[in-house]
Simulated assay, not measured.
Amino acid sequence: MYFANVSIAEKYNYLEEKFLAAYKWLRETDIAPLDDGTYPIIGEDVYASVQSYTTIDPSEGSYETHEKFFDIQYIVSGKEKFGICKRDGLKVKETIAERDLIFYDDPDMDGSVLLLQGDLIVVAPEDAHKPRLIAGEACAVKKVVVKVKI
């Protein structure tokens, strides 16, 4: 999936070396037995964060963005609804600079994507996203968030 405004359509190269290394790691690594934690792919520029959790009600989550990294969010097992909207115009709720996180109030209008086992979504700094949401009913999810430095 590629989601962008035409004004920034050519801003990023989603097939540059860092992205290709991330896709290859996701494709070739046996992730299921990995413990939650961080795994380097290309030093500090590209790394994987393995996470396990139970999906949450949308009222419990928040939209977020990152300034320094793209997210490649990949579902190892389970399923989740993944909220998505443009960052422009959102009201900042909280900034945690040391974690490269900005949280926002929910917008009046947003969309979502259903992520199933084996699916991934690439989220740019311009994309606000609300992960970990219940898709039908709460379920256990194992996910990898690959961080790709801008």
Rank of each mutant, 00 (worst) to 15 (best):
A48M: 00
S59R: 09
R27E: 15
P58C: 13
E28A: 09
Y39F: 13
S49A: 11
D36N: 13
I31Y: 03
Y47K: 07
D45I: 05
P33F: 06
A32K: 14
T29A: 02
D35L: 15
V46G: 03
Y39K: 04
S52A: 15
I56N: 03
G43H: 14
Y47E: 05
Y53D: 08
T55G: 14
D45P: 06
I41K: 04
V50M: 09
V46M: 00
D35E: 15
V50D: 00
S52G: 12
S52I: 01
Y47M: 11
I42Q: 08
R27C: 05
I31A: 03
D30R: 14
Y47T: 05
A48W: 01
R27P: 05
S49H: 02
T55K: 14
G37E: 07
D30Y: 01
G43A: 09
P58N: 05
A48G: 11
E44K: 13
L34Q: 01
L26P: 05
S52H: 11
S59Y: 08
T54I: 13
E44H: 10
S59W: 01
P33Y: 08
A48E: 02
P33N: 13
E44L: 00
W25I: 02
Y47Q: 01
Y47C: 04
I41R: 03
T29R: 09
D30F: 08
P40D: 01
I42V: 14
S59L: 12
A32P: 06
A48C: 10
S59K: 14
T54N: 12
Y47G: 04
Y53A: 07
Y39C: 08
T29K: 13
K24N: 11
G43P: 00
W25A: 03
R27G: 02
S59A: 15
D36T: 15
